[in-house]
Amino acid sequence: MVRTIHVDEVVPAVAELCISANYDLNEDTIQSLKQGMEHEESSTGVAVLRQILDNAAIATEERLPMCQDTGTAVFFVEVGQDVHLEGGSLYDAINEGVRQGYKEGYLRKSICDPFTRKNTGDNTPAIVHYDVVPGDRLKITMAAKGGGSENMSSVVMLKPSDGRQGLINYIVKRAAEMGPNPCPPIVIGIGIGGNFEKAALLAKKAILRPLGEKNPDPELAALEEEILKKTNALGIGPQGMGGRTFALGVHILKHPCHIASMPLGVNIQCHANRHKDVVL
C-alpha cells in the first residue's frame, strides 16, 4: 500500500526539530556529562562540566539556544519506499522548515558563500542525506552541527597495512592536536571503510547513536573502548583545561572497502550534541 504524505506536513515538523535540537540537550548526553563529572579528577574540569550541565538546564528552562553557534542544519532522511510525497519538493519543504525554525526559534543564521562570506540570511540551504528504506514512513533526523567541532574533522585514506593500530594512532594524534578547539568533552564519530565520501558520512551518522549504548559489534565495541581510553589519557580534559573527560564516547560504523583502500572518516561532535528526529 502506498501512503501519501503532503510536504506541507514536513515544514512545521522540521521547524520544530531545529528549535528543540538547539534548546533541549538529549538525556543521554546529560547523563554522560554527569558521569564524566563524577569521574573527573581535575577541579577545573569539574567546574567546567558543572557549567555545561547548568547551561543545558538554563537553555531548556528559558527556551534559549544552548550554544550561540546554532549550526549548519544537517538532515538524515529515511524515505520509506511505499511513501508517496505530494505537494512539491521534499528538499524545498525541509529548507522552508529550516527557514521558519531558525527565525521563530531566534537561532543564529550561520551559512554563507564560501568566497564572498555573504550570509544567506536564513541558515539555508540545509545539507540533506537521503536513504530509501522499506516501509511507509518518513523519518527525519536533524543535527545542528557547530563550526568549531566540524572544523576539527577529517577524512584520511589510510593504507590497508596501517590496520587497526594505524587507525588508533591517527585518531589519538588528531585528538592531541585539536586540544581545546572542538569544545570538549566531545563525541568522536568514526567511519571505517567504504570509500572517500562513505567514510565521512558513516562518521557523521555514528554520532547519532545515543551515548552509553554499546556498539552491537563486539570487535568495534572493543576498539571504541580502546580509543576512548587512549584519547582521555592525553589529559586534555573538559574545554582543554586539563583533566580526564575529553571524550564522552567513541562511536564507530564500518563498511566493506576496496582491496587497495582503508578510508577513515573522523567527525568531531562537541558537547552541544544536538540531534532530534521525528517520524511522519
Partner: peptide
Amino acid sequence: FAAIGGAGALLAR
C-alpha cells in the same frame, strides 16, 4: 581568558 565554549545560555545570564 576562556569562557566555556558552548555555554552560551549560561553566559547570557
